[in-house]
Amino acid sequence: MLNARISVPTSAIPGEVIEIKTLISHPMETGFRRGLDGEKMPRNILKHFQCTYLDNVVFEAEFFPAIAANPYLTFFIKATQSGELIFTWTDQNGKVTQKNRSISVQP
């Protein structure tokens, strides 16, 4: 489980478009760099990110080595009703890091 930080507003009004910010600690080693021994350092990256809201996938991202270390990603979703947001990162070996946040949506 990697260390991830997520910023989601705790409350919103129905129909409000809210900004979600995510940051996860990961080296995102590109596989193009050489170490001090002159050998190429093996690639080690996060491949996939997904956000589900009320059991629907609302946002997905596929990462390539050009994403900087400690991937930072912000995006928006439309708040419709109170519920849970689940954030899932998957690395190139299929290892999963999952976090959740709940949001209360009141008129």
Binding site: I18, N56, F64, A66, L73, T74, F75, F76
Partner: peptide
């Protein structure tokens, strides 16, 4: 870049607005 692809995002009508920010190499 040695690998020109940087990222690919999938959005839905639930996104509300099509705006993304990130940090790249």
């Amino acid at each position: 870049n040695p690998l020109p692809e940087v990222a690919a995002f999938q959005l839905t009508p639930h996104s509300g607005t099509a705006q993304i920010s990130t940090r790249i190499r």
